[in-house]
Design a protein around this nucleic acid. Structure first.
Lengths: 401, 401
DNA sequence: GATTTTAATCCATCAATTGGATTTAATCAG
DNA sequence: CTGATTAAATCCAATTGATGGATTAAAATC
């Protein structure tokens, strides 16, 4: 539905524009910011004055060299705000404290026996207390907490397309329950979208506004970044790259179709190849599998060639649909696997994106590595507070009929 | 790049919000508009007063029935503005005059011998003069002219992925040349995106903000509508659904890949099947082909089954990527063909979109029929003037370095 | 040492939204 | 039939954030 805006909203928006411009392009003088954003120098000065009390910006010594009065460069103060990232699966819980600069300040890792809400949530609460205590970070500098899990998320609730590794969370009101415990704004997202946002803020996507993040995990997820914002689809379930049809009439998938990409390209597909079984749906022994990759297991090498072929086709399709600036490959898999895939795929990528810029590569490896999940989770709160999103301008409309 | 906004821009935005809200949901009273948009009643009154001189809105007689002062309903005046739509291929030029209500007020159709700029542009100029003369529509009520052609469009210039049916237009500065002749704002787009915009404004997409328009023509194009706006990709070449890979290692495609969707689903694929030849790249005898469909040619029936299968897989992939509200199938093909495809595809569509709303169908037929191209072209100017787009808020930033 | 250039800020102005009060025109209750 | 109630639309003064022009500051250039 459409919505109007007003002066108040416009300023909130401009504040974010100024902050984000400095975060991404800094160090920048007030005059630089005015030039980049189109705002008047006076307005930029006004807005920057507003950030002073919170200490969000740091003034560097005057730049020298050019003519005229030397500008005062500004950068984001990484210690001015923090956020919590939470990620878990059936084996492990990870909670981190991230600063505004994208650095993980502290981390707690715990093995879990059962990944149920009753077990996880108290552990999270304790972990957050430990992190703030250990780092002496004041609670009111924490902008929020993000939690991700390997399921789809729709309207703030986990949902599932097939069998899930964390079935107890289905339709559980995670955001609400966690907010009560932590007394912080809470953001829930699926791992792929969160990882994409993390990459957008702090990683390979920093210089891009339009890219597709392919998240290689037990399945294959996707985070779609359009105009610098995640696109979640009309119902919050976009980006299911793993369920694109790769082979007509191919291997059956729990989603109900045949030949889905993640039956060929994913850790579970790799596991099946590794153990020479037709399919792998249960819990995967990741340590064994990663060791197999290290040892150049012939089954896995064969799988790599096959998977690269399927992934290439999917990327071609995705590029032809989105015409993005880049496709970023990441997820909780060894970097060598990502490298091997990219090496096999890149030379034969032909799509509408082909001709834009023959020089620079369009298929990139994510920068966040194995931490992508939890880093993405922590990015959610920062993204929510900082992004000059369209929605910042929204005046709430009264619900009618 | 980020940009700031100001009071002036905010009002332009609000003006569009008010107008578009009335256009889509009208008749609406001022109070209704205030409720829907979140703007105050006073602001709505102010803005509506601004539209009065241009006659953009019509006040209907006071509504009766409820308590309180009866509201004055407002609707868009369809005769307050017009736009020109231009479409051509190697055989025919069509120019229409569309009103704000989406009605085609007048139309000129001309056979063309050669579809070169030198031939087409003078014909267009004459046609526009004839249309305005015939309808007595004042030139300054025409908001602009939209032109579409069956090629990709990037940065205002036609480009091509493979061989084109209108090769002379490659890299020709269409917008500029046409603007000089018509003395109107000119918008160039590819046929699929334009058709999607037409459908968004006046057709099946009117009630949706997020949908994918699949444009079945000589090839297969796509128009992606996200949050009520076309998504053109980072370089303006998104939506090439026809070059999604449908069959790994399948039929060779001029784009350089194998197994592209449009080698199986498109009029040229149908033509190949109809004439029992392996491929059809040249000019197609559409009359013959359409007659074949009418006569239930067995080759074409066979093709329909096969094409439906491929198109189904593509739609599954598209839905899993975008999670849209709907997928709309249209293009310059007989309605019976669209019906036949939908009938074959719909029962077996399984994707993330599957569960949202089991009742209503997600695969729809476009409303604009054979005119979709030129109607889409004409919609471009209206869309540009009316949509409360993010970009309305943009203050132009000075280009730096 | 005067001039030029650029950055940053001060100050008065401008313009769109807003909240509160007022007017208008209908229905409802007795 | 009359007064009370309800809701729409408008009037008016206040608010607020951006803006343009003038001013000050600090460097390089001539």
């Amino acid at each position: 539905m459409l919505f109007g805006t007003n002066l108040d909203r416009a300023q909130r928006f401009n504040r974010r524009v100024v902050l984000e411009t400095i975060r991404v392009n800094g160090p920048l003088s007030r005059a630089d910011v005015a030039r980049l954003t189109g705002l008047s120098a006076q307005t930029v000065t006004n807005i920057i004055d507003q950030f002073k009390p919170a200490g969000l910006l740091i003034e560097k010594p005057r730049r020298t060299g050019g003519r005229g009065q030397p500008p005062i460069d500004l950068v984001i103060n990484p210690s001015a705000a923090f956020s919590v990232g939470i990620s878990f699966d059936h084996q492990r819980l990870v909670v981190v404290l991230l600063d505004l600069g994208g650095e993980i300040r502290a981390e707690v890792q715990l093995p879990v026996s059962q990944a149920t809400p009753g077990v996880i949530l108290p552990l999270v609460e304790a972990a957050v207390n430990e992190l703030t205590g250990r780092t002496q970070v004041s609670r009111d500098l924490i902008w929020g907490a993000g939690i991700v899990m390997p399921v789809l998320v729709s309207q703030g609730h986990p949902t599932a397309l097939g069998p899930s590794s964390v079935p107890d969370w289905k339709d559980y009101p995670v955001e609400e329950k966690l907010r009560e415990r932590l007394n912080l704004p809470v953001f829930l997202d699926n791992d792929a979208t969160a990882a994409a946002i993390g990459e957008l803020l702090f990683g390979a996507g920093r210089q891009y506004s339009d890219f597709i993040y392919i998240y290689l995990g037990v399945g294959v997820g996707g985070g779609i970044i359009i105009s610098g914002r995640p696109y979640r689809g009309a119902f919050g379930m976009s980006g299911e790259i793993g369920h694109m049809i790769s082979v007509p009439g191919g291997r059956p998938c729990p989603c109900g179709n045949h030949g889905c990409l993640e039956r060929y390209v994913s850790l579970s597909a790799a596991d099946a190849a590794f153990r020479a079984v037709p399919e792998s749906f249960g819990a995967i022994d990741l340590d064994q599998l990663f060791k197999g990759f290290e040892n150049n297991d012939p089954h896995l090498l064969q799988w790599l060639d096959d998977a690269a072929e399927h992934l290439r086709n999917a990327i071609v399709s995705v590029e032809n649909l989105f015409d993005p600036q880049a496709v970023i490959l990441g997820g909780p898999v060894p970097e060598t696997v990502l490298d091997a895939l990219i090496e096999r795929i890149e030379p034969s990528l032909i799509s509408v994106s082909h001709r834009h810029d023959g020089a620079s590569s369009r298929l990139l490896k994510a920068e966040s590595g194995l931490d992508s999940r939890v880093l993405g989770a922590a990015s959610l709160a920062i993204f929510d507070s900082m992004t000059p999103d369209f929605s910042v301008l929204r005046k709430e409309a009264v619900e009618v009929g």
